[in-house]
Amino acid sequence: MQPFTLEAGPLLLDQPVAADVDAIARYCQDPVFERFMTLPWPYERKDAEFFVNEYVPGGWSRGDEVTWAIREGGEFLGVVGLRETNSMIGFWLGAEHRGHGYMPLAVSAVVDWVFTSRWLESIRWEAVVGNTASLAVARRAGFRYTGVEPAIVVRRDRSRPDSWQAVLHAADDRTPKPGWPGT
């Protein structure tokens, strides 16, 4: 699959590039990432270089994982991606970009593309219990909460911590559903 861009309101979703490496390395050193993400820890510049130069292009070329940089006015804000093998969406923003409504826009653009292109018929989401920011994005995007299960995506220590799980099917409406933790 060839990389392509998506638009989401003021956001442009495109390929992470070499110019993003320093921002990626800086953002991924946030302690929140250690707690909730499967990224290497401690995260170093070489990890960001691998991500941009090998991981992302490899997923696109194999056609099994698509990853976009999220940008506003050319500034790198974060990442959103989707794995075909487990239909799992994942996303993150740099700390200073959280809370501005960027991620729901980016996730909606990816979901729209997935279902319009018929790449997948459903998308799964999971987050380690306690990741309320990720939960808020999934809820707002219209995912239906399905409960707590061991994580599908293995953590860096090979564990599968309890994770909130949700699903969104192509035929589902995108309004927030009841039944989410804390609602």
Rank of each mutant, 00 (worst) to 15 (best):
R35W: 11
F36E: 08
F36Y: 13
M37D: 07
M37G: 10
T38V: 11
P40Y: 13
P40E: 04
W41P: 07
W41H: 10
P42H: 04
P42Q: 03
Y43L: 07
Y43R: 08
Y43Q: 06
R45I: 14
R45F: 09
K46W: 11
A48F: 04
A48N: 08
E49Y: 08
E49P: 10
V52D: 01
V52M: 07
N53Q: 14
Y55M: 14
Y55N: 11
Y55E: 13
P57T: 04
P57D: 03
G58V: 07
G58A: 08
G58C: 03
G59A: 05
G59H: 02
G59D: 01
G59C: 06
W60C: 08
W60H: 09
S61P: 03
S61L: 12
R62H: 13
G63M: 08
G63K: 10
G63A: 05
D64L: 11
D64M: 11
E65T: 13
E65C: 12
E65P: 03
T67N: 11
T67Q: 12
T67V: 12
W68V: 06
W68K: 05
A69Q: 02
I70T: 02
I70F: 00
I70M: 00
I70P: 00
I70E: 00
R71W: 03
R71M: 02
E72S: 09
E72N: 09
G73E: 06
G73Q: 07
G74K: 06
G74L: 03
E75L: 11
E75V: 15
F76P: 00
F76S: 01
L77V: 02
G78L: 02
G78D: 03
V79I: 13
V79R: 07
V80M: 01
V80L: 04
V80F: 01
L82N: 07
L82T: 05
E84T: 14
E84Q: 12
T85P: 11
N86D: 14
N86A: 05
N86Y: 04
M88E: 10
M88G: 08
I89Q: 04
G90C: 09
F91T: 00
F91I: 00
F91H: 07
F91D: 00
W92M: 08
W92C: 09
W92H: 07
W92L: 11
L93E: 01
L93C: 06
G94D: 00
A95Y: 04
A95M: 10
E96N: 13
E96K: 13
E96F: 09
E96T: 14
H97P: 03
H97F: 12
G99C: 05
G99Q: 02
G99Y: 03
G99A: 04
G101T: 06
G101H: 03
Y102D: 01
Y102W: 12
M103V: 05
M103D: 01
P104Y: 04
P104T: 06
L105G: 02
L105I: 01
L105A: 07
L105W: 02
A106S: 01
V107D: 02
S108E: 10
A109G: 01
A109E: 00
V111D: 05
D112S: 15
W113H: 15
F115R: 05
T116L: 15
T116R: 15
S117C: 12
S117H: 13
S117T: 14
W119R: 15
L120F: 11
E121G: 10
S122I: 10
I123M: 12
R124A: 12
W125G: 01
W125S: 00
E126F: 10
E126M: 06
E126C: 03
